[in-house]
Design a protein around this nucleic acid. Structure first.
Length: 492
RNA sequence: GGCUCUUUGGUCAAGCGGCUAAGACGCCGCCCUCUCACGGCGGAAACACGAGUUCGAUUCUCGUAAGAGUCACCA
């Protein structure tokens, strides 16, 4: 049994979209689940599409997600170079071998001729197919043209009759009539290979055993098989994946302005949550467990769980999963990720930055209440600066409070705090809570009739991360008293 | 248009001839509770359609419909 080898072969466009990333992930997982190698190959045969810095996007994304490659640019193995533009001579050689074998031929047709062919085909309403004008050129003519330096391409010579069948690990056997196959270009007039050709040559030379890619290549796969057969090479296992969709009709794409991996990270999503979620889009594990680390996936992933139909990217579920990752994260890592953000909220509001321990408490308060890191500022802004609010907030049926009761309650709290140095000395949530319950009882008030007004006065919000006493502790005695006084003023 | 593929709740999906058709997100209700959230419990919600095959079809076959892909010197 040959060692499993897969490859991620992006063309450097400067944008790593979620679909590409998932393909890379599946390729990586297939290799790792079978103890194999995962390689990175850059497909930059289209010189017109060259984008500066695009390679870094690929490298950075793989790095951020932990998808390490065993061979590739910067990590040379035995099959380099791993950048197609540096393998130019290889393709030419193999294209010529194919010509010798009679499976390909030189074509000297001009672009103009092909254009007119195309327009007449379109007029007929059929798809374009090369008319095979040069397929049976006299060898002497070919030699003369070549000697004269006339530009040429090399085309694949498709069988005119019969059928070709290939097997896909996801879709099963697929058969097509050979006569529907176009004599596609293998080597372009600039001497560089087309994607279809470079792919086959490189996959063979690099020992790729599983070709994983989007199912838009399903219809060109018969041509691949014919190529492998013409060379006498082993045909790899094909694994075609259905796309990730933005909605019912559109794929996720840069054109549609859809988020790339780094866009999502910038929006507060964690790389491991993104990876976990997209893995589940189009693949399902054998049990009901949905949470997997990359390491766990390397063990449980299997091709049989890959689905045939497209999956719509559901940001709601990703958001939920991201929230779960945040909740399960250990506090130290969470603090490392968020303390700076919390501090900035105070700086940006022009408020005094609280002590480090307080900053920590604030961050932890918010930990179970956010789904993305980006939600932090909006959740805690009120701690830095109390915004104007409507006294209607003091009215709450279930808490049995209204403006009148609230005014009374705030007065009671203000006095109780002022009269109790021991509370001021030890202004922590538990103590305050205990203390206020006592105060409520003494005044024959429901707990909620004291706590709701306090929370409202201290926050000015209908909902807050943390209860009245937690917020009071964070704000500290002085600021709490100030906000209580402010509340009393508003209610008077 | 030709060729190819796809079709289970709003979404992701399990199912691989016999099930009250899993689970998750979202939604709704209840409980917990110093607000919100977390957590717990419960609920509504699906086999595109039509023929076959079969004792029996979500599952197999063939049509139909709807969607998608592909038909470049782009990948």
């Amino acid at each position: 049994m040959k060692k499993t080898r897969t490859r991620f072969a992006p063309s450097p466009t400067g944008y790593m979209h979620i679909g590409n990333l998932r393909t890379a992930l599946y390729e990586y997982l297939i290799a790792k689940s079978q103890g194999g190698d995962f390689l990175l190959r850059i497909e930059d045969t289209d010189q017109e599409r060259y984008v500066e810095g695009a390679l870094d996007v690929v490298f950075n994304t793989l790095k951020a997600t932990g998808i390490d490659y065993d061979e590739g640019p910067g990590k040379e193995g035995d099959c380099g170079p791993y950048i197609q533009s540096q393998r130019r001579d290889i393709y030419k050689k193999y294209a010529e071998i194919l010509v010798e074998k009679g499976a390909a031929y030189y074509c000297f047709c001009t672009k103009e001729r092909l254009e007119s062919l195309k327009t007449s085909d379109e007029a007929l309403g059929t798809g374009f197919n090369y008319d095979r004008h040069c397929r049976d050129l006299d060898p002497e003519v070919v030699a003369m043209n070549l000697a004269a330096g006339i530009p040429y391409v090399i085309r694949q010579k498709m069988p005119l009759t019969g059928t070709t069948t290939f097997t896909d690990a996801v879709y099963g056997d697929i058969t097509v009539e050979n006569k529907t196959l176009d004599d596609q270009v293998l080597l372009k007039s600039d001497g560089l290979p087309t994607y279809n050709f470079a792919n086959v040559v490189d996959d063979h030379l690099m020992g790729i055993t599983h070709v994983v890619r989007g199912n838009e290549y399903l219809s060109s796969t018969p041509k691949y098989n014919l190529l492998y057969e013409a060379f006498g090479w082993d045909i790899p296992v094909y694994v075609h994946c259905a796309p990730i969709m933005k909605d019912e009709h559109h794929k996720l794409s840069k054109r549609n302005g859809d988020a790339s991996f780094f866009d999502l990270v910038a929006k507060g999503y964690l790389p491991e949550a993104i990876l976990n979620y997209i893995c589940l889009l189009g693949w399902s594990p054998s049990g009901n467990e949905e949470f997997y680390t990359l390491g766990e996936l390397e063990k449980v992933f299997s091709i049989s769980g890959i689905s045939k139909s497209p999956a719509i990217f559901d940001i709601e579920k990703l958001t939920w999963m991201n929230g779960e990752y945040i909740k399960r994260m250990d506090d130290d890592r969470f603090l490392g990720l968020t303390l700076g953000t919390v501090e900035d909220v105070f700086k940006n509001a022009g408020a005094a930055v609280p002590a480090p321990e307080v900053l920590k408490k604030i961050a932890l308060l918010v930990k179970t209440r956010i789904s993305t890191l980006a939600e932090i500022p909006e959740k805690i802004g009120f701690l830095a600066a109390l915004q104007d609010y409507d006294t209607e907030l003091y009215c709450h049926k279930k808490m049995k409070t209204d403006r009148e009761i609230s005014l009374k309650a705030l007065g009671i709290i203000e006095k109780a705090f002022g009269d109790s140095p021991e509370v001021k000395e030890n202004f922590v949530s538990d103590k305050i809570y205990e203390f206020l319950l006592g105060v409520a009882a003494e005044n024959e008030l429901k707990n909620s009739q004291l706590l709701w007004p306090l929370r409202t006065a201290v926050s000015g919000l209908p909902a807050t991360p943390g209860g009245a006493t937690e917020l009071a502790e964070i704000l500290g005695y002085d600021e709490t008293m100030r906000r209580i006084a402010d509340g009393i003023a508003r209610l008077s």
